[in-house]
Design a binder for these strands. Sequence first.
DNA 1: CCCGCTCTGTGACTTTCCTCACAGACAGCC
DNA 2: GGCTGTCTGTGAGGAAAGTCACAGAGCGGG
Lengths: 221, 221
Amino acid sequence: MLTGDAREHLLQHYPMLREMPAAELDALLAAAHVLDIPAGTVIFDEDQPCQGFPLLLSGSVRVSKSSPNGRELQLYRVGPGESCILTSSCLLGHSPYHARGIAERDTRMAVLSPATFKALIAGNEAFRDYIFALFSERLTDLMQLVSAVAFQKLDQRLASLLAARTSPISTTHQALADELGSVREIVSRLLKNFAEQGWIRLGREQIEVIDIAALQRYAAL
Amino acid sequence: MLTGDAREHLLQHYPMLREMPAAELDALLAAAHVLDIPAGTVIFDEDQPCQGFPLLLSGSVRVSKSSPNGRELQLYRVGPGESCILTSSCLLGHSPYHARGIAERDTRMAVLSPATFKALIAGNEAFRDYIFALFSERLTDLMQLVSAVAFQKLDQRLASLLAARTSPISTTHQALADELGSVREIVSRLLKNFAEQGWIRLGREQIEVIDIAALQRYAAL
DNA sequence: CCCGCTCTGTGACTTTCCTCACAGACAGCC
DNA sequence: GGCTGTCTGTGAGGAAAGTCACAGAGCGGG
């Protein structure tokens, strides 16, 4: 059951729901429930079936693949206003998960039953378009990712990652490595190179971007 | 306008269309048109907008990314009965293509206007489910691909590729390299290794798989 | 039958990335 | 202040993959 704040957040992040008849919206809200998930929780993992459609209200979720030898690679991130499309994929494609989802920060989501979700998709054109657009975006992201992993050097990918964040980036080298699918040592070395070029300044759990343009130029090489 | 053979093929590969009222189906068929595409044709390319939804009737399409230095990597293949989901993605996500599509063999497809497609999605539950399932499958495939490219050695990927085809595989080493995102020399060397292990036998434009089990075992290592 | 084309085999070398191993740096906490 | 745990820097060594260069093999067309 969704009420008060949660209800407001939902309508704010998923404005297309406002277009529904009030009675239907109420029914939907009554059927949904809210989950509060502390940072670091593993929300789902490989080969698990899934049971509902999450609509993110706040926080963010990291979706990643991990290799047998302990390396990890981030596939994408899900923010508020973005239903985790992978879950939709599981339910619609009738297959279990093929990746892991971890709450990066404290996260709140509304969970719809498969039936409710299907009804929404069928009856609400705006919502349906929205979901399709999300699917489409993820597909595009993944294609870009495949191409980056296959064809780009690690330093270029790192550069573009750094350039894409807001400047005092506070993270560990290990976390960056996990995002890129590499290992800590390499990331450390590459960062040192960038620092020697004068593109960034390094500190403990902190990276300050000094010359974004140079990073972008190098990434696009 | 779709008639005769093409109509039969369409209904055969997309059986969910049979469930529509006859009048609607006729309207749909009248609005659609058929494209015959000779093998080797580039059907779409990066950064091109797209105008219609193709439903494959026969043949097959290779969807791939290519790198600035001329290497290539196959993302997936589309067969009869599989609308090219990337195109849907383009139209639904309102973005241009991000990959290249080439007809592997002579290919025939029915093309629907965006409006017709949207109407189908809205009005036909079975068709909608089908499209979602396709999206879902592609998403899963791509996630697997990312993980393979990032974490698996090339010889393992090659082994699983060989194991997945029916035995007298007729192709060139270059084509295999393009599928894997690598280069010809490497593929040649790896194939030679496999041949020395007694897993395959090599001939000009021909690879005979002798020990599938061994290949699969090696791929799964 | 020979010419020219594509396809294949192969050696030598380079680059990129990973692995292992450890040492120093910094923060927080008793 | 000393201890502990996490984070970072770095060197040595190796494996995988890509690059370059070229030779031979097979096939089809004139």
